[in-house]
Design a protein around this nucleic acid. Structure first.
Lengths: 231, 231
DNA sequence: ACAAAAGTGTTGCTCATACACCCATGT
DNA sequence: ACATGGGTGTATGAGCAACACTTTTGT
């Protein structure tokens, strides 16, 4: 074999597709776009794009995320590959799937995308519904061990808000009292002086994430949800 | 945009690289090949190949694994993407990384590959050393929650053998007494009548995996190694 | 008899769950 | 005053780490 080894026609289309999660204070949502080109024009779809010659797939995914949300440095993780030769009708496209977590509030809304509640997701093109389902599963597994869900919240937040977030992600009731204790025990939160008085009479203190601890914990097991099993 | 959208020259080379783990009764090993073509001819490398037009990346990885080991239906998992534009000198190649677990004993040895102890891995081409390192990390995380390491053992095995395996993977001493209890408590093992008398005077009973429980547990958390933290 | 490895019993501790209860405040 | 949601205290039990101890058998 020679250098021609590389020249044979083995190149294929490589795409990235992004499952963008957001949290609207009550439910987990994903950001979808309406396709404005064929095939499947007009149908809802994940945001995606092709990996260019001179970028890495991770860069491609960040580029796609930025083009849709205007945001940089989004938390993002590659979690699956969809590559059946017939998954798209026109040609064999291998897709690298990324899930991303963004704080909805920062998002400027002049882009032609719409938030959908995860459990009211419309039919999507190709195998995108399956991707969404796998992304949610992966998110649940990851977030049970790593405190990544804070990426979905603003800089300051209350403990009831975090609890609602976990309940939305796991579609499960939590004992708010015990969960509060676990959160505080994690040493991940810094209590602020301010209180949120909108959602209760007593008011709930705002907290922020201790970034130094977070950086540590995000690469270490934490196990926020013991006793939670997948599927 | 039209169908020409797909026609633009966005195709790139997509490869799969396989980190093949084996266990020689004492240490964790990986299977490497000596490259017989340029570039980097003669240097050690992971086994890899390009994804063809009409196959999925998973199929490509199984094809690569079979071509090197002669084995079908190998346990395998995609765990990373390496795709920096300059990771290979000739051209941009995006590589999907799979780790695989095989039982060394089944392996016919007439293939031009060699087992290396994980901690005595030679310098490899490109970013392959980094891939091996990430594969090992991923294996540790996964195996702490799922009983996948049995894929590395023969159909029957003793508890001391499993313990050695876990010690090799985590490069850590285990309390054999407590670990024994945990293994038996998992209900994953079926005790056989036969004993292995070669490694001790008393002899250790052989066990086999209860496949029905295994199928269940392999998709559910088990937490074989609580208190083990990554890195 | 003794060494050496397999495997069991027991204890103390941590931590998750369950739930009673107090706290702060708007109406 | 009382309803409402925020938050703390405390008892129970499961499971893990530590380690003493028994079991089996080749020499």
């Amino acid at each position: 074999m020679t250098l021609d080894f590389y020249k044979k026609n083995k190149k294929i289309l490589l795409a990235v597709d992004c499952i963008i999660f957001g949290f609207n204070k009550e439910e987990l949502e994903i950001l979808l776009i309406q396709r404005d080109f064929e095939p499947e024009k007009g149908k809802w779809s994940l945001m995606g794009g092709f990996v260019e010659e001179n970028e890495s797939p991770g860069d491609a995914a960040q580029r796609v995320l930025k083009s849709l949300t205007g945001l940089d440095h989004i938390y993002m993780e590659q979690f699956a590959v969809f590559g059946n030769p017939n998954r798209e009708p026109m040609e064999h496209v291998v897709s690298l799937c990324y899930f991303a977590l963004i704080n909805t509030e920062i998002l400027s809304t002049d882009y032609k995308a719409r938030w959908f509640k995860l459990d009211k997701c419309p039919p999507l093109i190709f195998d995108h519904n399956e991707m969404v389902h796998e992304a949610h599963n992966k998110l649940k597994k990851k977030a049970a061990l790593y405190p990544i869900l804070f990426e979905l919240l603003s800089d300051k937040f209350t403990i009831p808000q975090i609890t609602l977030l976990y309940e939305a992600v796991y579609q499960n009731q939590l004992d708010k009292r015990n969960f509060t204790r676990k959160l505080l025990g994690s040493k991940l939160l810094i209590k602020l002086d301010e209180k949120d008085k909108e959602n209760s009479k007593k008011g709930a203190y705002y907290y922020k994430v201790d970034k130094s601890v977070y950086k540590e914990k995000i690469i270490t097991f934490l196990n926020f949800l013991p006793g939670w099993y997948e599927e």
